[in-house]
């Protein structure tokens, strides 16, 4: 007998006389946990409370200009696949950011799929590159304000609908999703909070108000 069938058999025997508990339904009835009705404000408040930074710009061009200036302070940079076009928008090709591998980069730029207001989370997908989101000590992330969802569930639904529309086989989700809700941190050494343990110690969300 395979382990699979022996485990499932034991489960069925254990449950044979057990009363089945009904699913209580949606988590939505008494959520979302929102301080204000405005998702952008909520996202900003939560993200900053967790140690992240937020800046906001009217247009992509203004945001890109600011990010290029921000990144100029670092010697080596990596750029996510989806962020590249955004970052270099309006820039002449000879002014494009010079890129290096994320493992050697002091700072990196990415594009978030979206964000969740309720928890203050950036939604990161592998189409942009996971290494670029994790290896550089400083992480700058473009975020379209229109894609700040109220709750986690709304964010998940949006992911299913937009990234792989119609892909029912894999549940419509990308191969892996990372929610980044602040910098990397730990209190494992003497219970003292330390930032930037493995992932980025500094994370800046750059909100673009008009898509």
């Amino acid at each position: 007998m395979t382990a699979r069938s022996s485990i499932l058999d034991r489960v069925r025997i254990a449950l044979a006389n057990r009363e089945v508990v009904a699913h209580p339904g949606s988590f939505e009835g008494w959520r979302p946990f929102m301080h204000s009705g405005n998702p952008t404000e909520q996202f900003t408040e939560m993200f900053e409370k967790a140690g992240g930074e937020v800046v906001s710009f009217k247009t992509q061009a203004e945001a890109s200009l600011w990010v290029r200036g921000f990144l100029a302070d670092f010697d080596s940079l990596s750029v996510g696949e989806l962020a590249r076009g955004r970052l270099n928008e309006d820039a002449e090709p000879d002014k494009w950011i010079e890129e290096t591998d994320p493992s050697a980069a002091e700072a990196g730029a990415s594009l978030a799929f979206g964000a969740v207001a309720e928890t203050g989370s950036l939604i990161m997908t592998p189409q942009d590159g996971r290494r670029a989101q994790l290896l550089p000590p400083v992480h700058v992330v473009f975020l379209d304000q229109a894609k700040i969802y109220k709750g986690l569930s709304e964010g998940f639904v949006a992911l299913k609908n937009e990234v792989l529309p119609g892909d029912n086989e894999s549940g419509g989700l990308p191969s892996a999703v990372g929610l980044h809700s602040g910098p990397s941190k730990s209190a494992d050494i003497g219970q003292v909070l330390v930032k930037g343990v493995h992932g980025p110690g500094r994370v800046v969300a750059v909100i673009i108000e008009s898509a």
Partner: peptide, 15 residues
């Protein structure tokens, strides 16, 4: 915390 600073949802290998 309202949520851990990193939350992974892993469906499968690289596509």
């Amino acid at each position: 915390q309202p949520i851990g600073n990193f939350f992974s949802l892993i469906q499968g290998p690289k596509r």
